[in-house]
Design a binder for these strands. Sequence first.
DNA 1: GTCGCTTCTTAACCCGGGTCAAGGCGGGCG
DNA 2: CGCCCGCCTTGACCCGGGTTAAGAAGCGAC
Lengths: 197, 197
Amino acid sequence: MTDAFDDLAAGLAGLAAPRAIDPGVLATLLSRVRRRDVARGEHLCRQGEPVDSLFFVRTGLLRYYYLADGVEHTGQFFDAGMLIGDVFAMTGGDVALQNIDALEASELLVVPMAALHSAYAADHAMERFGRRLIEIGMIGSQRRTAALLQLSPEQRYERFVASRPEVARRVPLYLVASYLGITPEGLSRIRRRRVQG
Amino acid sequence: MTDAFDDLAAGLAGLAAPRAIDPGVLATLLSRVRRRDVARGEHLCRQGEPVDSLFFVRTGLLRYYYLADGVEHTGQFFDAGMLIGDVFAMTGGDVALQNIDALEASELLVVPMAALHSAYAADHAMERFGRRLIEIGMIGSQRRTAALLQLSPEQRYERFVASRPEVARRVPLYLVASYLGITPEGLSRIRRRRVQG
DNA sequence: GTCGCTTCTTAACCCGGGTCAAGGCGGGCG
DNA sequence: CGCCCGCCTTGACCCGGGTTAAGAAGCGAC
């Protein structure tokens, strides 16, 4: 499982690295991490159903989305190096509020929530690390809210392409539309305007 | 400062109460909490400026908002019993990304971030409590994102009134509009439709 | 009382994106 | 090879909310 640690450590290097975490606690946590390969289209969880893990994306691309009267609304995309999980389910909610599926064949590391909670309980520094992770996610979530409030669909599209060009290339446009909160037809028109005007 | 503790404890009772937190650590934290009364319209922080505290709302009503080319977009309202603070500034970002102001004359408890971080460092259970707080905020933020993605302004208004009737009564409509992501005129039309039919 | 400010509403016009319906295109599979 | 299906685009029409401009109601200050 050393390679799992390397990937996780590398992926999380941008955050305050887990320096002070007790090596034994970390080893125990990592020993419970499993690899999992998922095919494009495969679901890791569905809203209303119980989940017991969160996922580290080693390669590939995933998203979480909400389903409202037949329409999918994409919350966020996750590519290599990111952690994806249902926060509600992770914090005692037991069932997921979101759906998570793979947009490409992906290679994941599966972190059992029970193992994570054990690690939190066993080591203060680990708990702190978890707090930082959520805080960073919270800032991203608030930024997304701000974007939805203050930008037009067209501006959101430009900003999305500018900030995540890699993801924008790999994701089909109808999913980009569902992330921007518009229809595929709407996005198509926006793109045409950009080429012509 | 006992009354400060009571209020905080009562306000946070809905969360996993801070039972296991070391009494000494808690006492030290609470000893550094100060009361502050703010007038309607007063700002607690502005985007781009440093902040060093977060706030517990004892009475009154506040909000945070973003300013984009002269237009205010309200992120969330906070009334009695809630904690309000700029997460980015609270996590090493140093300056605020948000503006916070009082919509009514309010009575606050001011928690210095330095004191909070000391308490986090001093006690594992306190750190965990902080993690839970952020997690709960994160779930709320994701719910808000989902609402903006999948509901029309009209639906968002209905849902807002249904879920926070107290706040809806106390907040001027032009601020409700800025929370819903529409203009006061737009909200006015929505309300008229609802009355007529 | 009245001046002035804030808040809310109304009306007219505009426009972006939703909706519906149709068609194009490329790639996988039989 | 040819078919089908997933993905994308286009066009026509509609409609909600933005924009602009104006005015009404409430209310505090003087």
